[in-house]
């Protein structure tokens, strides 16, 4: 099944630092709960892994990430990730992420994310009902981690702009972002967040 996400997240960090982090796939993966880049295959492709634990069920997706496009001018990356789990699920994601400045607020930025996630197999069959909520939850966590990591980058990184396109991996390796993300997605926490979100939306809705 396919889940489409089109969201804008406000960031408490300047566009330059956000863009620097967005280009660094290793660091970027670190912001995604349970995800990591395990190996670089070529200039713009990587091997990665995602661990997802919900109750007793553990899914370990192994797969590849390809940087399809990295546009410094527009501060946009296009990623294509594909992975499969030995237990019989597979997933593919096309992600289009753009950092935009916020008018009159140089210390702020917006992250525009458009993603199409196609999930196959057991996850689609049994997780279908929760897929949208889980995806949004995960992205929410990702954005929090992303913002925290970007804030830790050194302020003046202007030089990055002149580096050749799609040459990202080593660049700000020293920056060591705060890894708030657990090594795997915590199903209970996820569930709690879902329930909380659901109740919040229920009671926030004005009575008609």
């Amino acid at each position: 099944m396919e889940v489409k996400i089109d969201k804008t997240y406000p960031l408490e960090v300047d566009p330059q630092r956000a863009w620097t982090l967005l280009q660094d796939l290793r660091q970027l993966a670190g912001c995604m709960p349970g995800a990591e880049i395990t190996e670089q295959l070529s200039a713009n492709s990587y091997k990665g892994a995602v661990k997802l634990k919900v109750g007793p069920a553990l899914a370990q997706f192994g797969g590849s990430v390809e940087v399809v496009e990295c546009d410094h001018q527009a501060r946009r990356v296009v990623l294509r990730a594909k992975g499969a789990d030995k237990g019989g699920s597979s997933a593919a994601m096309d992600l289009n992420a753009v950092i935009e400045p916020v008018a009159d607020a140089p210390a702020k930025a917006s992250l525009l994310g458009q993603a199409s996630v196609v999930v196959n197999g057991k996850f689609a069959q049994f997780g279908g009902r929760m897929m949208v909520q889980v995806s949004e939850m995960m992205l929410g966590q990702f954005v929090q981690n992303f913002q925290a990591a970007a804030q830790q980058l050194p302020q003046a990184a202007q030089a990055q702009d002149v580096s050749p396109a799609v040459d990202v991996p080593q660049a700000p390796a020293a920056a060591a972002p705060a890894r708030q993300a657990a090594r795997e997605i915590n199903g209970l926490a996820l569930l709690w967040a879902l329930i909380r979100g659901w109740f919040a939306s229920r009671f926030a809705r004005p009575a008609r």
């Binding site: 099944m1 396919e2 196609v118 999930v119 196959n120 197999g121 689609a124 069959q125 279908g128």
Partner: peptide
């Protein structure tokens, strides 16, 4: 069925 043939 979804477009990928998953029986939902």
């Amino acid at each position: 069925f979804d477009a990928q043939g998953n029986l939902l």
